[in-house]
Amino acid sequence: MNAYTAVTRASYLAYLRDRTSVIFTFAFPLVFLIVFGMLFQGQSVDGGLSYINYIAPGVLSWGIGNAALFGVAFTLMHWRRDDLLRLIWRTPTPLPTVLGARYLVALGTGLVQAVLFTAVALGAFGLHLSGSWPLALPVLVFGITAFAALGLVVGTLANTPEAVAAIANCVMVPMAFLSGAFYPIDLMPGWLQGLSRALPLRYFDEGVTDAVGGRGGVALPFLDCAALTGFTLLFALIATRTFRWSNRN
């Protein structure tokens, strides 16, 4: 077993054995979907999208980003607090291998979340999938990557589970509204629409919405992927600069 496989296995086992956490990771976006779906059944938003085709990609991208950020941040915080990072430091295995293994878990979780969520949205709320829906797959991968990288930043900043939750919520809840995921961008004041361009969720949501709705052709989701890559690099840079092996000093 090489180090990458071993840490991936360890991360998956740790994740799957925390049943409560698994259940709520998958239930959380579904709850939002059901609530929004019931509130706005049959309505449409600006641009002619049916409400479900607007809100489902928004809740999906937010829920997946949320899970990736929280998962990676908690893991990094725990590894540092329990001195596992120091254990890793002593071995010949480079840190990116270990973090890469944890990233695979985030990726797997996100893709399963997407399948489950889409099934419910299709079956219960009449989501319409356009022929270009497979374009949503690269957007999902790039979106999960960006939020996992943001998770590294949060996990580096926070020393306790409480701090992870506080920081991550403070980042993710306002972003849900400001990026257009929960609230249509067209209804926002102009300056807020501009601000939304500085948020990764804006591109994640937009990419998934366009792919699922068949808008903007093939090029548009790829522009969103490019923007998400930019965020990934930025977050990875911040995480590299602020990384700590230990909580002491």
Binding site: A6, R9, L13, L84, L87, T91, T93
Partner: peptide
């Protein structure tokens, strides 16, 4: 420093893999 929610053997197998 133990890998969370693993068994003693799984933990040691993970550490062994880190040491190649």
């Amino acid at each position: 420093a133990f890998f969370t929610r693993l068994t003693a053997r799984e933990h040691l197998e993970t550490v062994a893999a880190l040491y190649r």
